[in-house]
């Protein structure tokens, strides 16, 4: 009898504790239901609103001031993962709105954390073009770039050519009729081919040539002020986000290679390359250390050898030593040893 009573009490206590725990548990954000929604699709560059509605799992009441964190799953430069976009708090209706700018074509995968388990939202972006545009710069003001210069210089040269024509006229001035001797000399001068091949025509010709050069310069000049029309970059490919040059392999080399790369630098910095060669290939002064064992390399660096200085731990840390060895190991592969 007492046992049964005890059992009944225990059940009641357990139920109460359970209810209490359940109630408080909801308040501790363990049992929320999060409904998320996003527009069907968006265009590139558009800012869409991601809405998340948070309800208490038990009571169904909206939860106020619940914190939701938004992540986006992406891959870039060979590194894949989630990037944190930001956080949003729910209002008194339990609704949190997050502004999300669409910067990527294709499927967007948004993870929202805050509920019992992450909610995943996925939607496509199919339309849109280049988002980033260079600023207008000097082209904003008509004429500021080159037109003013063209106009001023052009006008000046037109007038100069008029002057040149006037000078030609001077040289072809009519001979004085009253002085026969001079008229004769004048005639002689004309017959010796100075009529057209004289200084006046030369001056004018030079002026026309210089003016032509200036015009050519102005015409050929690329309008590249302010990164507006980046012409002239036909030497190498352009990196498009999608397309021929998407840089598919773009990313950081793995850690060993990175270590070796640092080691390569240290190999030069500490002067090893001076005797052993930049690629640790060995020279007439010293042979290649590439095939040496780790212990041997360590012992030689720390204690030195005839013809080679020693490096203490203060001069060359253990990390650096390891990096140098990583480089040597890499060099061993490259040298085929």
């Amino acid at each position: 009898m007492t046992v049964r009573r005890l059992g009944r009490w225990a059940t009641i206590v357990l139920l109460v504790v359970g209810f209490v725990l359940l109630g408080s548990g909801g308040a501790l954000a363990d049992h929320w239901t999060v409904e998320v929604s996003a527009p069907e699709e968006g265009a590139l560059g558009e800012t869409i609103q991601l809405t998340a509605t948070v309800h208490d799992a038990a009571t169904g009441e909206p939860v106020e001031s619940a914190e939701l964190v938004f992540f986006s799953s992406v891959a870039f430069a060979g590194v894949g993962g989630d990037i944190e976009l930001g956080e949003a708090l729910t209002n008194d209706l339990g609704v949190a709105v997050f502004d999300y700018e669409l910067r990527k074509l294709g499927t967007h995968t948004i993870t929202i954390e805050g509920g019992d388990e992450p909610n995943i939202l996925s939607f496509p972006v199919t339309i849109g073009g280049q988002l980033y545009q260079s600023p207008e710069g000097i082209n904003l003001i008509p004429g500021a770039g080159g037109w003013v210069v063209t106009l001023v210089i052009g006008s000046i040269w037109v007038i100069m050519i008029i002057v040149g024509v006037a000078v030609i006229r001077v040289s072809r001035g009519s001979p004085p009729a009253d002085n026969e001797a001079e008229a004769e000399e004048d005639q002689q001068e004309r017959s010796t081919g100075t009529k057209w091949l004289n200084t006046a025509t030369m001056v004018t010709a030079v002026m026309v040539i210089v003016a032509g050069g200036i015009v050519a310069l102005l015409i050929r000049s690329p309008n590249t002020h302010h990164n507006r029309d980046p012409v002239g970059y036909d030497r190498s490919a352009v990196a498009f986000v999608e397309g021929a040059y998407a840089y598919p392999d773009f990313g950081l080399a793995d850690d060993a290679a990175a270590e070796a790369e640092i080691g390569r630098g240290l190999f030069v910095t500490f002067g090893c390359a001076g005797c052993h060669g930049v690629d640790a290939e060995g020279t007439t002064t010293a042979k290649s250390p590439a095939s040496a064992s780790y212990d041997w390399v360590r012992q030689v660096i720390r204690n030195g050898q005839p013809g080679m200085p020693s490096y203490s731990e203060q001069e060359l840390s253990d990390t650096q030593l390891n990096e140098i060895f990583a480089f040597l190991a890499e060099a061993r592969g490259e040298l085929g040893g």
Partner: peptide, 21 residues
């Protein structure tokens, strides 16, 4: 971090971030 403003993304080789955020 090296990144792309067009896609709003950057990386330091280990970690990805949104440039704007």
């Amino acid at each position: 971090y090296y990144g792309d403003l067009e896609e709003d993304i950057a990386t330091n080789g280990r970690q990805l971030v949104s440039m704007a955020a």
